[in-house]
């Protein structure tokens, strides 16, 4: 199976009054049709910016270098016009905050149908019918009535369903969901995750799930990549990542996730602060917080090394030693 979306050596930097800041450094990823890739990291780890770059949505002071190919088409060198034929049509994105991500002065129906009208040149009537169909598919009750509502008349959960429906309108090959549940209530979160699982089963799309929550990834992703300070530190199948985490940061994240099946006395946290991107530690960016740190970590940056089963990680310490 070939990858629909391939990211190769992507670096994203922002120019600020205090100098350039690299939000993403030399990231390579790929995702196949029908597969769900979970991209995990703290806020500021560069996970969102990686895909903002793919969508051509970086802030104005941001620049991206490297390559991002959608089915062989390089997205980074595409101009706005070319990008517009791909965005919404072949690659779609679901954003974190459904409360502010819908245009407040447009009716839901129109916001949905305009994607189709733009890309597939259907007429308004067909667009509306397909929008209604899609609202039903994402299980929005009374879909017909909602078409003529404004976003503020819908709850957060419903709005996120609308966002998902919007992303699905053209049945894109790649769907990027950026923290789709973070802004929602816990019960609603579960419903949205169920919906995403359903989308994954029914469509042959590649799904990228960006989240800081390993629990979200566990149920949905086939493969998981972990980012720290703009770099991928570990990547592997969801089974490997959860059963045999090979990077101290991943282990830390796993330890932080509260579990019902294991009795612990207190919540575990990773000590120290998330890194300051303007002033990254030397060597391995994680070394100030790492409990396995050795001198080498402070001066050299570990490269990603392959282990078995496509599992890769960037750490100097032997896997066994780390995996206790």
């Amino acid at each position: 199976m070939t990858s629909v979306l391939e990211i190769d050596g992507l670096t994203v930097s922002f120019s600020t009054p205090d100098g350039d800041v690299s939000a993403v450094s030399d990231v390579s990823l790929s995702v196949e049709a029908g597969e769900c890739l979970g991209l995990v990291g703290e806020s500021g780890s560069g996970k969102s910016q990686t895909f903002m770059a793919a969508m051509g949505l970086l802030a104005d002071n941001g620049t991206a270098t490297g390559e991002i190919r959608l089915d062989g088409i390089d997205l980074l060198s595409a101009n706005e016009k070319k990008l517009n034929t791909l965005r919404g049509e072949r690659i779609a994105m679901i954003f974190q905050d459904p409360m502010t991500s819908l245009t407040p002065h447009m009716k839901i129906g129109r916001q949905l149908s305009e994607v189709l009208i733009e890309h597939q040149k259907v007429d308004a009537r067909t667009g509306r019918a397909r929008a209604l169909d899609m609202l039903n598919r994402v299980h929005i009750p009374e879909a017909e009535r909602r078409l003529d509502m404004y976003p503020h008349e819908l709850s957060g959960g419903l709005r996120q369903r609308v966002m998902i429906a919007m992303a699905l309108m053209c049945e894109p090959e790649v769907i990027v969901a950026d923290e789709p549940t973070t802004a929602l209530d816990v019960t609603v979160q579960a419903q949205i995750l169920d919906l995403l699982a359903e989308v994954k089963d029914n469509l042959d799309a590649a799904i990228v799930l960006i989240t800081h929550d390993l629990g979200v990834v566990a149920g949905l992703a086939d493969r998981v990549a972990v980012m720290y300070a703009g770099r991928i530190v570990e990547q592997g199948t969801v089974g490997d990542i959860f059963a045999l985490p090979a990077h101290p940061y991943t282990q830390g994240l796993l330890a932080c996730t509260p579990r019902l099946d294991v009795e612990t006395e207190a919540l575990v946290t990773i000590s120290g602060q998330p890194p300051n991107l303007q002033n990254l530690p030397s060597g391995c960016s994680f070394h100030p917080r790492c409990k396995y740190v050795v001198d080498q970590c402070k001066s050299e940056r570990p490269a990603l090394e392959a282990m078995d089963n496509g599992h890769i990680r960037a750490c100097f310490r032997p896997h066994v030693e780390v995996a206790q």
Binding site: T16, A59, N61, N276
Partner: peptide, 27 residues
């Protein structure tokens, strides 16, 4: 990266930073 006016690089005080991510910690 693209030639639309919105993507023009800006400098100085009017800098905008992508939402929530990346840089708010750096400040």
């Amino acid at each position: 990266m693209s030639d639309a006016p919105m993507n023009e690089r800006r400098s100085g005080a009017n800098l905008s930073v992508p939402n929530a991510d990346a840089l708010d910690k750096a400040a």
